[in-house]
């Protein structure tokens, strides 16, 4: 697998950093080279939070990148903050529920709107929104296998699953839902 660069951005509290960390850990567990840098600007409490992930089979060079292969913006403000990471080679993903003008969207290979927020609210639970996004990242990039992602989730949230086994089911469903959502939107996505 050659280098994949992902930028994941959302509001503080949406769980962007935990998702990034779980993905990075899953990749590490699959013996891939991985770097994950959290956004660590001044906005540690609230504001837009960005996670930068790189996964590769070979040693990774600079921890920073200018343009991502995949950008996922999980809030309207996050769209503004992430346009600089997108170029003609980028898959740019945002949530369909945002009220966004066409002009606001950046240059991209493909812009994909996914119904993650609606699906989380209507079909599962708002708290697993970030796990749907995690599934979407996997669906879009294949940086880690679905099994490795489940294992990393178990490592991270196992203690919660022990207390409430329904949660495990819910998280796995969310992961799968995100993956399928991403794969479908890849087929339907419009070139911009």
């Amino acid at each position: 697998m050659s280098l994949v660069k992902i930028a994941l951005a959302g509001e503080g509290g949406q769980g962007v950093q935990s998702v990034a960390e779980i993905i990075a850990e899953a990749a590490y567990n699959e013996k891939k080279q991985t770097i994950y840098i959290p956004n660590f600007g001044l906005e540690q409490r609230g504001g837009v939070s960005i996670a930068f992930i790189q996964v590769s089979d070979e040693r990774i060079g600079a921890p920073k990148f200018n343009k991502a292969d995949v950008v996922i913006a999980l809030s309207e403000r996050a769209v503004d903050r992430t346009t600089i990471y997108s170029d003609a080679n980028t898959l740019y993903v945002y949530d369909q529920s945002f009220k966004i003008d066409e002009e606001q969207l950046p240059e991209a290979k493909k812009v994909l709107g996914i119904p993650a927020i609606d699906k989380a609210n209507q079909e599962l639970h708002p708290r697993v929104f970030n796990i749907i996004i995690m599934g979407a990242v996997i669906g879009l990039t294949n940086v880690v296998s679905f099994e490795a992602a489940k294992e990393a989730l178990e490592n991270r949230l196992g203690y919660k699953f022990e207390k409430n086994p329904n949660l495990r089911e819910l998280n796995y469903k969310a992961l799968e839902m995100g993956k399928i959502m991403a794969e479908e939107s890849l087929k339907e996505g419009v070139a911009k």
Partner: peptide, 9 residues
Amino acid sequence: GYQAKMREP
């Protein structure tokens, strides 16, 4: 800061 905050093996 990058080395401080990033994760790598």
